[in-house]
Every structure is written in C-alpha cells, then in structure tokens.
Amino acid sequence: MILTLCRRYRMFLVLFGVNIALLFLEPSVGRTAFAVTGANVLEMLSFLPPIFILLGLLDVWVDRETMMKYMGQGSGARGMLLAFILGSAAAGPLYAAFPMAGVMMKKGASMLNVFIFIGAWSTTKIPLIMFETATLGFRFMALRLVFNIAGIFLIAFILENDVRRHPAPAPREKEI
C-alpha cells in the first residue's frame, strides 16, 4: 500500500527533494519555489473540487446518446458552438481540462469538438479576456483573440483529420 503510493508519487517526491536541496544550495531560489508552489496548490484546490464534481455529474447523468446527439459526429455548427462555449466558460489552467475532455471522448463527443473545447479552454476564457483587456489594452486583446479563435478551429480541424486517418487508441478507462 505504502509502496504503491510511493511509486505513484515518485515523480512528485523526486521534484520535492530537488526543491528541498535548493533550499540548502540556493536558499532564496528554494524559498521562492516553495512559495510559488504553495500558492499554486492553494489555487488548484480552490477550483478543482467543482470541476471534478461537474465531471462526475456529467459522467453519471449525461448518457452516450445525448452526448453524441449534441457533440458527436454530425452535430455540426451547433456542436462546435457548444464546445466553444463550454471551454470558454471554464475556470482553471489547461491541465484541468484534460480529464473533462477524457469524459467527453468516452461519451462519444467528436474529436473535432473535443479539441475545440480544449482550444477554447486554453485561450478564450471569459474572465481571462477581461483581465487581459485591463492589463494589456483592448487592441492587443482583440487582435490576439481573433488570431486565437481562428487557430483553435484550424488546429481542431487538422487534428480531427489526422484521427480519421490514424484512429487514436481509446483512452484508458482507469484514467477516467
């Protein structure tokens, strides 16, 4: 039990060890690293619980037929729009989006929509856009937004095309 725990967390333990070593070798860098990590862990713990509860609810309540109808193959522009809105309304960094995308794939959402969701989550989150306007100005924000939206769809189309030619292995059940 403890052994499996150690194995699962070995990467974390190694990095944690590096950080402790830094405390002795380069005290100021080590301290900053711990402070940044601490702040990030707190931030993560603040937004992850609702995301994972939503993920659980999605998994239990939305059946395969519904997901396929709204976001599956042939859901067309409506499915793309839905994926885009869901991604943009999210909170949290991109890595929190991957488990969500995993459930969507398992339930039969098309890869195109999954990657639009991922793209929207990464760059067009609404609170972040408002923040960007405040810090960097409207012109910068608007131009980057236009470019990024075009990029999101372009990348999603290319990836979907590739999946068709090289079918992806189904995501491992245990990860989801």
Binding site: V29, T32, A33, T37
Partner: peptide, 10 residues
C-alpha cells in the same frame, strides 16, 4: 505544480 514552482523561482 512543484516543477512550475522551481521554474518560476529560477
């Protein structure tokens, strides 16, 4: 998160 912490400190 630990990796990001170390990177941002450096």
């Amino acid at each position: 998160l630990v990796l990001i912490g170390i990177m941002l400190a450096v």
